[in-house]
Design a protein around this nucleic acid. Structure first.
Lengths: 104, 104
DNA sequence: TTAATATAACACCAAAAGGTTATATATGAA
DNA sequence: TTCATATATAACCTTTTGGTGTTATATTAA
């Protein structure tokens, strides 16, 4: 199991973790360099990386004595798909109007 | 539970709250009817609704002795905008490949 | 071989999240 | 007025979250 203890929605709920994803989008980084970007301890950074890892959003690979983290954005498609349902409510004002009138 | 500001990312992190949004997308509903859809107490439902309310995702209006909740999906645009940055990584395999080769 | 570095592995803590019951208040109906 | 219904709120419980610090282990450089 361990599969879906942390889903992608929960993983991106934290602003620190979102910032980590942004960093890794630019460049693969070891834990120490990631830590340098935040005002929290390395231990705390590792915990955030674990949560992102469980959600399959990042992947860490040991290279020498460093562990290099890499962005793995595929699970974000789930969020995109979820969001797409609600796009009708802001992308089509006419449909929205019709819908609002009919629903009560 | 969340006196401080609840942003939209945190609000949609919980599956129960996402299901509530889905219900309200179909029809405006009073608290009692929303509660009927979940295996949790009405009090717990109200707490979730408060969090959604703080994130401006729903709005409650008192009508008689009922409080009718309505979907207010605009804040989801923030999530959509955030996501759009990552779309390059899955919508253009060629760019992704190029990017992966250059970044380390 | 030894010293320095990077991470792993703990134990510990405070606060927040998600839930419960119990009680109170407001409204509509009889 | 009285009663049933809908919501509000307070108090409390348990688990998770997000953070800390310390210590141990593995790897690299000198």
């Amino acid at each position: 199991m361990g599969a879906a203890k942390h889903d992608v929605f929960q993983a991106i709920a934290d602003p620190t973790r979102r910032e980590m994803l942004r960093l890794l989008a630019v460049k693969n980084l070891p834990i120490s360099e990631i830590t340098a970007h935040f005002p929290i301890s390395r231990t705390a950074v590792v915990k955030h990386l674990h949560i992102l890892s469980e959600a399959q959003l990042v992947q860490g690979t040991k290279v020498g004595r460093e562990k290099i983290y890499q962005l793995h954005p595929d699970p974000l498609v789930e969020v995109k798909d979820w969001l797409s349902f609600y796009e009708q409510f802001w992308s089509n004002k006419l449909a929205l109007l019709k819908y609002q009138m009919e629903k009560d």
